[in-house]
Amino acid sequence: MAVDTLEPRGMRPRPFFTPRKIIIYSLLFFISVYYLFPMYVMIVTSLKSLDEARGGNIFALPIKVTFDPWFKAWDTACTGLYCEGLKVGFLNSMKITIPSVIVSVLIASINGYALVNWRFKGSEVFFVILLFGSFIPYQVMLYPLVIILRELHMFSTLQGVILIHTVFGMPILTLLFRNYFASLPPELFKAARVDGAGFWRIFIQIMVPMSLPIFVVAMILQITGIWNDFLFGVIFAGNQNYPMTVQLNNIVNSTQGVKEYNVNMAATILTGLVPLAVYFISGKWFVRGIAAGAVKG
């Protein structure tokens, strides 16, 4: 038994197959299978011809791969009266999401900065009211909001739905930014004031460059939230501005003709592609932002 009598020295040997590791990896494996399986079904179905999709086993791989459903979903699928596919919705979603994200992140970051560093009389009360807003289910506010937008002559317009998204993003984003800025050393702010910098200069030259991770987190939250939104889009955007989610619903839930499962699957994947891409590209930043203390306190 030479090994047993070996005197421990240097790095401790770590066996690869420990019970702990086996449990962790098998658990991770099953969880990923559980979540990836629907995705798998969607992808294989979208690559089948309609006959094959209706006739065959949904788990089976396509016998003959075809991209026609994808082209149809994008270009010619019927959403209600028009048969121009999802591309119109994609464009609308872009037109809604990009301004909404930029405006809401911009305002919320200034809000958070002001709440932490430029306390004014009643700033705490203001913050509490803002937070309170995030606990009210927004279905409650739909009707009053419709009236307000009507009075502002913004109902059924792009600006209207952008305004709604900006307002509803405010509580959580402000909280996010406030907590992040509160975690930065207050001396930095003081030093900048002694150096003579004012409200905007401190924000733009000192605070923003230090806050890249939290800006990324906020953008991801907003992009996915606004892109995936259905309710505000269907109510406030108006027919000509329906976002992709609404058009997807119109394709999938159309009641005439045959159900084109392959086209529906392709359309669904297309709609989900943007948030998915955002997560893949900026996942590292997202984790870093969360780890930077953005969500604690």
Partner: peptide, 20 residues
């Protein structure tokens, strides 16, 4: 008066250097 108009310079415990 504002800090910048007081004719002072200040040094902090945590240095407070602008990291970027």
């Amino acid at each position: 008066a504002e800090p910048k108009d007081r004719g002072i310079g200040m040094v902090f415990q945590s240095y407070a250097l602008y990291p970027q």
